[in-house]
Design a protein around this nucleic acid. Sequence first.
DNA 1: ATTGCTTCCTGAGCGC
DNA 2: TGCGCTCAGGAAGCAA
Length: 270
Amino acid sequence: MPELPEVETIKRDLEKQVLGKEICDMRILLPRAFENLHNTDVKGIINQISRIGKYLIIKINNLSGIDFLIVIHLRMTGKLIYHHSSKGFDEKHTRVVFLFNDGACLIFNDVRTFGKIEIVPINTRIESLKKIGIDALSEHFTFKLFYDICKSKKTPIKNLLLDQTLIAGIGNIYAQEILFLSKIMPTRPANSLKKKEIKDIYQNTKDILELAIQHNGTSISDFRRVDDKTGDFQNFLKVYGKKNCCICYADLIKIKQAGRSTTFCQSCQK
DNA sequence: ATTGCTTCCTGAGCGC
DNA sequence: TGCGCTCAGGAAGCAA
């Protein structure tokens, strides 16, 4: 599932593949893939691609009207695939197709249909980004800020890491990896953590997200890059989907937290 | 204010 | 082979 490193990988791929290209039309196969579909007149040149948390933001320079943004959240199974032709690709689970004036296209494919696209004129409030917290790789995400967030919440540290209104970008895979590397039990109330422990979690968050980006993300099941290739970081995971601890070989414990599975080592994580 | 449960959705994997 | 069941989970919406 695309978390910060996967979305960043897609962002970088898109910068190489579609930056400067002109969108001339859009095919909608699943209308509910859109958050608020007011304007279907999606035409213009892609002149900037950015990311905040797990959101991808594509800025369009509209030649005959107001510039706008295409804001995309891939959720569980969403993919953006570039295809050199607007024909001949696998139509299964294709929800939206952005057509370029050179005949190529960008396909939004999404098996479980949880992904969302929002198209908004520039300088308007983006509904989906309204409540989002600070990006985990932003320079403004400082240790002091993270320390204060932890000290102000008694929720389990894993739930805190997953709360996008506090810190944006961490999902279920990386939250577990961060806590394993930090040797912290995912169930620990955030405000019970010592300064050194918070420091470790903070540093591991930055380190693992950056390392995962270097490996083009984690392809557990559905994640694919824009050219349909997989990332590599699944080969470096230490707890997610594992049965035994890679340090002490003990059986890993699996529990549910906030409706999502958590795997951890009872003896290595305190 | 805060926390936690339910809902959306499809395919993979499993036991029989 | 095929059926029915469980599981995967991000975030909105709602309830406590």
